[in-house]
Amino acid sequence: MDAKPKLLSVLDVVTGVLMAAATLAVFFYAPTERVMGAVQKVFYFHVAAGWVGMLGFLAALAAGVAYLRTHDAKWDIIGLAGVEIGMAFMLINIVTGSIWARPIWGAWWTWDPRLTTATIMELAYAAYLMLRQGIEEPDRRARFGAVYAIVAFISVPMTFLSIRIFRTIHPVVIGNGGDVPGAEGGFSMTPKMTQVFMFSLITWSVLFVDIFWHRIRLGKLANRVEQLKLKLGGRTA
């Protein structure tokens, strides 16, 4: 059992303080947008969550490649951690986007390329978790996880592109260009908004590192327990 590193404890505190500060900044420092009103403030954490969600999936891709090259169990732990955290943050991104879209675009859901791609990603990584669940042998589970993390990530840009072309040829269904951000629901950021936006991005990146670290430690613990189980199981059998 390894003790919690001091740096991690410090990081926990820093993350907590930053999150509190960013939340206060969003609610009290950032100005209210003239047309959209209060809901525009969802934007700060919405984008930040999407950004760190992508970081998680990117980490899983990199870990997948590294695992196939080295066959070091450490990369498997990192890959799984990346997918899990990516899914949690991407979920925040999708749901907050939907909440924002209801008053601004007039519908909870539109087939906007970004929204649709994010949701397909979420489904692909849910498939990743199901694949892992279906395999008992640790080594094979790690290899298949790595392969699927790579395949899933590669398809993402093409999915986005296909929906993008689809939209430009297809007539726009809702409003007049209502689901193309920038056409409606777009806004220009004031300096104060930019400051809060940048601060949110930094804060969420720190949050990401902190949670990622904790998740990796959990993964290592889970591996040790699995090894112990195999060892004891082998002896009694």
């Binding site: 397909i120 498939a127 694949l131 279906g134 398809s155």
Partner: peptide, 18 residues
């Protein structure tokens, strides 16, 4: 995998969308 019959479409379709 253990759950092979239901697993293939779930793995395949998200990647197949484009």
């Amino acid at each position: 995998a253990r759950t092979r019959d239901i697993l293939l479409p779930i793995l395949l379709f998200p990647v197949l969308i484009p």
